[in-house]
């Protein structure tokens, strides 16, 4: 399968701050990929670089087989709406919908109209007065109605009510099946969105920690809990990502697949063992202290 997005060893520094530190991952064409990680992990910087709105200090990025920076033929096939997208002061929804097709050759007005109605976006209010949720709705309209080969959705859920989130999922999947494209979506609402993804990339402090098929991500880590002695004994042979102790009881998230041997060991020591959910995994990588392991997980 060809890759729609291919980032190799991308590093981006801003003065003395390293936003991205040797980031490498690829998103296959037609994939809906989740980009997960804490605030400040580097998600928006990664998207900016893919969208050609920024360049890595070193390293390489290819979108649809070409470098996106100042490359009109690639840029016209990418849609990227920042979570803090600004609009001209006097703009209303109608202005945005009229100008959007100028930047999106595959723009579909029906998709835009259906979403605008479903989201109940006010048409007579200036966008600068919109609530957080209404701004997110506008960003989703721009992202989906563009039908761009590469669609980058940066925190599309911010402030969205539950009805709007369901509408977004519904439209994304319906329009995607009719017009397949590559979608990279960043979010903190992991449990709610993980069913949408076929791949996930987890970043923390500018580094890729997980780059995996979503089905394989279940085998990347597991949690052990029980008495401190039992858990310490069980965790000895594993890389601990996160641990939590309360008066003699301990729970840890460790890297690796849960096999029959470790299951039997846990049973023998009276400890509970369970696969780590995607949310556990992201939380664990996000809690890791800076001096701990350098190991990531790839599948």
């Amino acid at each position: 399968m060809t890759n729609a997005i291919d980032i190799r060893s991308a590093t981006r520094t801003f003065g003395r701050t390293t936003a991205l530190d040797g980031v490498s991952f690829a998103v296959p064409e037609g994939s809906i990929c989740g980009l997960l990680g804490r605030n400040g992990a580097g998600k928006t910087t990664i998207m900016s670089i893919i969208a050609g709105q920024d360049r890595p200090t070193s390293g390489r990025v290819e979108v649809l087989g070409h470098g996106p920076f100042e490359n009109e033929s690639v840029l016209s096939r990418i849609s990227f709406v920042r979570d803090n997208q600004r609009y001209p002061d006097n703009y209303r929804l109608g202005h945005v919908l009229r100008i959007a097709p100028e930047f999106a050759p595959n723009w579909n007005a029906d998709v835009a109209a259906e979403l605008a109605e479903g989201f109940r976006i006010p048409t007579k209010t200036d966008i600068k007065k919109f609530s957080r949720g209404q701004l997110s709705s506008v960003a989703i309209i721009l992202g989906l109605a563009s039908r761009a080969a590469v669609t980058l959705l940066d925190e599309p859920y911010l402030g969205l009510d539950v009805t709007a989130r369901a509408l977004f999922h519904d439209m994304l999947l319906r329009d995607y099946t009719a017009h397949p494209r590559t979608v990279l979506l960043s979010t903190h609402l992991i449990e709610e969105s993980e069913k949408l993804f076929d791949r996930v990339v987890v970043v923390d402090r500018g580094r890729v920690r997980v780059d995996s098929d979503v089905d394989d991500a279940r085998d990347l880590a597991f949690t052990l809990s029980g008495t401190t002695a039992a858990v310490d004994e069980l965790a000895r042979r594993h890389t601990v990502l996160r641990s939590h102790t309360v008066s003699g009881l301990k729970s840890v998230t460790v890297l690796g697949a849960m096999d029959d041997a470790v299951r039997a060991d846990a049973d023998g020591l009276g400890a509970r063992i369970a696969p780590a959910s995607l949310q556990d995994l992201v939380a664990a990588f996000g809690e890791e202290s800076s001096e701990s392991i350098e190991e990531g997980a790839r599948a």
């Binding site: 037609g30 519904d170 999947l173 089905d215």
Partner: peptide, 11 residues
């Protein structure tokens, strides 16, 4: 099924 259960079509 994908649209109904709001899940990835490949899945």
């Amino acid at each position: 099924f994908a649209v109904f259960h709001q899940m990835n079509p490949a899945t």
